[in-house]
Design a protein around this nucleic acid. Structure first.
Lengths: 193, 193
DNA sequence: TGGAAAGTTAACAGATCGGTACACCTAAGC
DNA sequence: GCTTAGGTGTACCGATCTGTTAACTTTCCA
């Protein structure tokens, strides 16, 4: 039961769950895709739920670190970084494997408020919101937390709209629209206008 | 096979799917909740997918007509109606049975772009966007379609955030935050400032 | 070299999945 | 009154669901 074996299982399970959904993905499919035996799988994870929670923890790390790094690469001012988030999102939306936000989907499939999967999804959003708030504060926003919440609304809306627009079912460029809206909000929130 | 019997089945199935999710709800559960026999259920709907599509059609009608009526009740100016949308959303979020947007959840559970359920969910959003655009045009917006898309982003973001915030997992009042952001966007888009 | 730890295959459990076969019942038309 | 068509309940289909049991092989380290 090497720990890196477990990590590898989590990594592969992530791609299958992301592509296929949680309820629609059976343990048999995961076993087939990872090449591991069913018994070994259940040695590493006592239940499917435990596996999903491990997948979400990994996704939280991966996604946040990718986003944080990317917006720092794209701009070195706090204000610019808040806008660069939408450029990073745009890059994500254009990847062929893009299938929306894993946490939105997880909270949609596990709706009970007290369910660990639902709670963990909400925690991810809260961490992002806090991060945006700290950047907004550095940018000199009068109400950094409020600005962060509004930017998070635009981000979530852009992700959902990008999913709908993926096959041409919804018109518009969600990332670009969100960025323009964010620019408007920034001019209203930042002292230098 | 009376037609109103079918409507009643769709109505009841809607509440069960909305509360429980699509994959997680089996036909056996629907049969038990509606009181009808399984054979009758399959006389009315050839497959589960056909039932889900009928449910989404009903949801589209119900939701859009509720939202359109409510924002007209709350304001009689186009600009006021665009803002009133977020008051209507706030009322929705506070209902105990609120479980997020059925179309976001449907598109999350049926991700293939060409899947009828996914396509129908995207179509719902497109219809809403067109409606907002016509109101934005009546309000005198310079770019009504762009404003409509941005307001839709805020609406979708608010819904997703409201789901996450339901159990206290995410701080903030998504409807109020979205309304304030929308007010900001309106001042930037409308000629009278 | 011995032995525990970890991994393997394979079969299986009990429940539930979407969907169907078939006998039964009831109500309308002759 | 009899037939017939349509709705109904029951019981079932094969497949799949999450999870387990038991016996066997590999690996690694003392």
């Amino acid at each position: 039961m090497r720990p890196n074996k477990r990590d590898e299982l989590v990594r592969k399970a992530l791609t299958v769950f992301y592509r296929n959904g949680f309820h629609a993905t059976g343990m048999d499919m995961l076993v087939a895709e990872t090449g591991v035996s069913k018994t070994s799988m259940y040695k590493h994870f006592r239940t499917k739920e435990e596996l999903i929670l491990a997948v979400l923890r990994l996704r939280d790390e991966n996604f946040r670190h990718w986003l944080y790094r990317r917006i720092e690469e794209l701009s070195d001012t706090p204000e610019g970084q808040l806008l660069a988030m939408f450029d990073a999102l745009s890059e994500w939306f254009e990847k062929p494997e893009f299938r929306g936000c894993m946490f939105i989907k997880a909270s949609a499939e596990f709706q009970e408020v007290n369910h660990p999967i639902h709670a963990q999804s909400a925690a991810h959003k809260q961490i992002l919101q806090d991060h945006f708030a700290s950047i907004a504060k550095a940018a000199g926003a009068a109400e950094p937390v409020k600005l962060a919440r509004q930017l998070l609304l635009l981000k979530e809306g852009a992700i959902v709209s990008a999913v709908m627009a993926r096959g041409g079912g919804l018109a518009g460029d969600p990332a670009a629209d969100a960025k323009e809206a964010a620019r408007g909000l920034l001019t209203l929130h930042l002292p230098q206008g």
